[in-house]
């Protein structure tokens, strides 16, 4: 059973503003979905090997793939706010 408070906590973890009435509605829907998927929790995991780990070390080597700054302008064009070669955000501390 997921409560409205649970939804608000989860929304907080996910950094999403959710209005109160929607949180209440979502609590009911998510309870329904979890009720449907709960058969997964009854899975016997004792006879199956480790499934927790996926691909390992798949990134390319850390090398210079192109001239520094080549794509900066293009990428910053998509940014909501920028200052010269930097993204601009509010104070972090």
């Amino acid at each position: 059973m997921i409560t409205t408070d649970d939804v608000k906590k989860l929304a907080n973890l996910a950094r999403i503003d959710i209005p109160d009435d929607e949180a209440e509605h979502l609590a009911g829907e998510i309870t329904g979905i979890l009720d449907y998927v709960k058969q997964v929790t009854e899975t016997d995991v004792s006879n199956v090997g480790d499934q927790a780990h996926g691909p390992h070390n798949v990134f390319r080597d850390d090398e210079d793939t192109h001239e520094s700054g080549l794509h900066t302008k293009t990428l910053l064009e998509s940014a909501p706010d920028s200052d010269e070669q930097y993204l601009k955000v509010k104070d972090i501390l």
Partner: peptide
């Protein structure tokens, strides 16, 4: 930004996934 940008089904799945 995330509250206004994501629609209802997307929010539903993000919350479910977070859970």
């Amino acid at each position: 930004s995330r509250g206004a940008g994501f629609g209802k089904e997307v929010r539903r799945r993000i919350i479910l996934g977070t859970y």
